[in-house]
Design a protein around this nucleic acid. Structure first.
Ligand SMILES: [Zn+2]
Ligand SMILES: [Zn+2]
Ligand SMILES: [Zn+2]
Ligand SMILES: [Zn+2]
Lengths: 236, 236
DNA sequence: TAATGAGGTCACGAGGTCAC
DNA sequence: GTGACCTCGTGACCTCATTA
């Protein structure tokens, strides 16, 4: 039985093409292969910084967070469609897409996956696979990515402005952390911007980034948002 | 009756989320779940090396004491706030927190818990649960941990300097071991440092680490300290 | 017996390396 | 700067000795 073999190849969606695993996997297994990189569409080598991605995008994101230098301004107004063939041409858009896809230093997970997680991974990968999407749907998802990027950064900035204890507070489990005494202007302004919140709700409800498997960092954003008093009374 | 089921899930504080037990518990039980890991806040899987902790911190500590290699120097001056998402980034601080939480090879216990022990566990877990702590109290506890770590190592060094029989001597019950002929400079200097001792007393009195269930090794430190002649006439 | 945690196992990904 | 490849720390799950 196929899923019985049970490693990351099995639990994630199967593609006809063969991906490159990090190590010497290619030759020594029948390797059912991984879904493609969420950023550029190249063959992925696993889940990096919380997102199914290729070695290139993984390394790129690593360098970004390590040396946090400013990118050259995008020549197309920040709307490049990142693909394998052009990913090297616009670092700014590539980075934005990394973030929008859910890449985050806070999303790294090490060690094995739990059985439950594996099953969830499999379901998610299948549900949101390219195969189940039309070209239009894919395009819409790409657009969502850009909006999502903006919202994520907004909320993160707001969070950082209101939390002295920096990033560790994002962590689950338990209550999403939000200091009672810290309802700053930043949060308030966000709370009062109805459009942005409707948008947020909409995206969180429909997008493929909701699952904590594919992007725990976004899940954390949701948790944080939920923890805000009076945050639109998010029911679920 | 709830507590009647009587295993470690029952006697410790119940959380709404589900933890991962070591084995295949997840599916086959209603498992009331454990308190979170005292080191990183992740779901715990039981009491390891004397401390309620997760599989990750358990394995980490095991590796630490097995291969006793030196850690890379902490980049934040040894003051990292260890959390689930960043626990992998600073082994030094993680180890410090393990020790400060009471983890010790001398705190291992095997086999079942007695009824009395279970009830004690339950009471302690409930008393010191996150639910009964404000965020400020938690922060204060974290600060205590760092101070505690320093004191523990100080006392241990002092102990080792005065005890030929190495570490096994920490074990209780019976008289805490202290060689009459070995009142070294190290001990003396400790004894004469009023601030440190007041601090010690204060922490031992107020902190959640006092119980021998959650951290027998710290209990041992107290016992050892008590056994020192003229050790501030510790009444309790 | 049943409960429980130490120790072992090995899939997994972060980070480093270096030809390009 | 990029990315294919490597090393190694990590942690979910397992077995097994130990105890009530
Ligand atoms: Zn890619
Ligand atoms: Zn661009
Ligand atoms: Zn932990
Ligand atoms: Zn540190």
């Amino acid at each position: 039985m196929f899923w019985g073999a049970a490693d990351v190849f099995d639990i994630l969606l199967v593609y006809p093409e063969c991906n490159t695993r990090q190590s010497t996997f290619i030759s020594d297994k029948k390797s059912p292969c991984l879904p493609c990189c969420r950023i550029c569409g190249d063959f992925s080598s696993g889940i990096h910084y919380g997102v199914v991605s290729c070695e290139g995008c993984k390394g790129f994101f690593r360098r970004c967070i390590a040396q946090k230098k400013v990118f050259a301004k995008c020549l197309k107004g920040g709307e490049c469609q990142i693909q394998k063939s052009n990913r090297g041409r616009c670092p700014e858009c590539r980075y934005k897409r990394c973030v929008a896809s859910g890449m985050s230093i806070h999303s790294v997970r090490v060690g094995r996956y739990s059985k439950r997680q594996k099953i969830k991974n499999q379901a998610d990968a299948e549900r949101f696979s390219d195969k189940n999407c039309t070209a239009d749907e894919k395009l819409a998802m790409d657009k969502n990515d850009i909006v999502l990027y903006n919202i994520i950064t907004n909320v993160m900035v707001a969070h950082q402005l209101t939390c002295q204890q920096s990033t560790h507070e994002w962590d689950l489990p338990g209550e999403a952390c939000f200091h009672d005494n810290a309802s700053s202007l930043a949060i308030t302004s966000l709370l009062n911007n109805d459009n942005e919140f409707d948008e947020l709700l909409d995206i969180f409800t429909t997008s493929c980034f909701l699952t904590d498997v594919l992007s725990p960092s976004v899940h954390n954003v949701v948790q944080f948002a939920k923890s805000l008093q009076g945050f639109k009374d998010l029911s679920q």
